[in-house]
Design a protein around this nucleic acid. Structure first.
Length: 247
DNA sequence: AGCCAGGCGGTCA
DNA sequence: TGACCGCATGGC
């Protein structure tokens, strides 16, 4: 998930146990962390080889989230060619600058209109670099109705993806993140540098064809099945935790 | 100090 | 398709 999301202030997790702040209703957490998914069923469906088996065994508390599409879209546009500490700082600064204060010193993610009303220099303290202009442009496209963000729930994976990729700064990877983490489209399989390395290093035997993002995602759908998005999360997390050996 | 980042959009052969 | 580049800064 994207850290810096204000939700992090309302829960703590130890392994598979979630401690929630009673200021938010239980239903919120059930929805947000997809606690209504049938995890045992999903795990067995993607458990195709020793490598992914190790990941789903060791990191069993890891979940996909169901995040608001607007927040997810902006967050992953910010993540482009950046790193996690910096991403968290940018989102935090942006929320402090434009978001409503929810409780003491905890700020909500900015509304669409707030970002759409900005000019480039308004955001100069958020260390967004070349991303700032793109974010504002995206906000204005959504605010004007040129892109109906909340209409994408009713579209299939490929239609919705095409819509998202009309936005400057949203390509294959970012679109798949939004489709997976917000819309719950399980066909999405975001291929970033880490997942790219995992496939090249551990799945080169079963993967055929050019190492392009659409091809790797297509392979993942047929290899892991419908819940390949869960496989992506576990493979990504394992690679981040256990490092870059062999990459 | 200097390379590279949970990429994207463009160009070139 | 694959290999490159610029983009703007910050992290390590």
């Amino acid at each position: 998930m994207v850290q810096g999301d204000y939700v992090h202030a309302f829960y703590e997790q130890e392994a598979e146990t979630l401690y929630i702040d009673s200021r938010l209703p239980v239903e919120f957490f059930v929805k947000y962390f997809r606690l209504d998914d049938d995890l045992p069923c999903i795990f067995s469906s993607i458990d195709h080889d020793p490598y992914v088996h190790e990941a789903i065994s060791k990191y069993r508390g890891l979940r996909l989230i169901r995040q608001d599409p607007w927040e997810c879209l902006i967050s992953y546009m910010i993540a482009t060619a950046s790193n996690i500490p910096r991403i968290m700082k940018s989102i935090e600064k942006l929320s402090r600058l434009l978001g409503r204060e929810i409780v003491d010193e905890i700020y909500a993610f900015p509304e669409i209109s707030a970002l759409a009303a900005c000019c480039g220099e308004d955001l100069c303290d958020c260390s967004l670099g070349f991303r700032a202009r793109r974010l504002i442009k995206a906000a204005r496209m959504i605010e004007s109705g040129e892109l109906d963000l909340y209409g994408l729930y009713d579209m299939d994976y490929f239609q919705a993806k095409q819509q998202l990729m009309n936005i400057e700064g949203i390509g294959e990877k970012v679109a798949d993140c939004i489709l997976l983490f917000s819309y719950g489209k399980m066909e999405a399989f975001p291929v970033d540098t880490h997942v790219d390395r995992v496939i090249r290093n551990y799945y080169s035997d079963s993967f055929e064809g050019p190492y392009t993002k659409p091809k790797m995602a297509e392979w993942a759908r047929s290899y892991f099945g419908h819940y390949c998005g869960y496989a992506q999360q576990y493979l990504f997390y394992q690679h981040r935790r256990e490092g870059k050996l062999g990459s």
